[in-house]
Amino acid sequence: MSEDAVLVEEKAELESSESTQQERTWQPIILGILCNWCSYAGADLAGTSRLQYPESIRIIRVPCSGRVDPAFVLKAFRKGFDGVMVLGCHPGDCHYAKGNYYARRRITLLQDLLKALGLPEERFHFEWVSASEGNRFAELVQEFTEKIRRLGPFKGVVTPEKKTL
């Protein structure tokens, strides 16, 4: 099964368990796309330091934030993720020297696109996280999860009355 299908299945399972057990509170599902050299290492550090952060995030490791095709984010929303985070090395720190600079332009335009399409921009979060910022990573995930929890479940890329699936 493709990675995508697994993620969607997880979401479906979570949703069905939600509907069967009304008492259980809704948990947001967040996609994190993390650069291997800084942000993923930062997440690792958070783990090895035994820092607590919400299990709402599903992490995909990419070689560089420059690898992040904006279509990854669009597809995540299309598939119904409640929030998407893209994290990369700080400007100047890229393992490949300038991958994150290219990413920066793309992500900026992606934010503009989400705005033009009327999607809730708050559900997309972009941030620089270095390998030493384990603490900061945990905080970011915590904050973003709280924000998404306040926003509630994502209702889809098209308005409910146009939904087919």
Binding site: D4, P70, L74, K75, L109, L113, G156, V158, T164, L165
Partner: peptide
């Protein structure tokens, strides 16, 4: 990878047009 299904339903159409708009940004 399958970015968008061939069926013309609003969600898939959204995926096509949004991604195309991004590619042309």
């Amino acid at each position: 990878p399958k970015w968008t299904a061939k069926k013309a339903v609003p969600e898939e159409n959204w995926m096509f047009h949004a991604t195309r708009a991004m590619h042309l940004a």
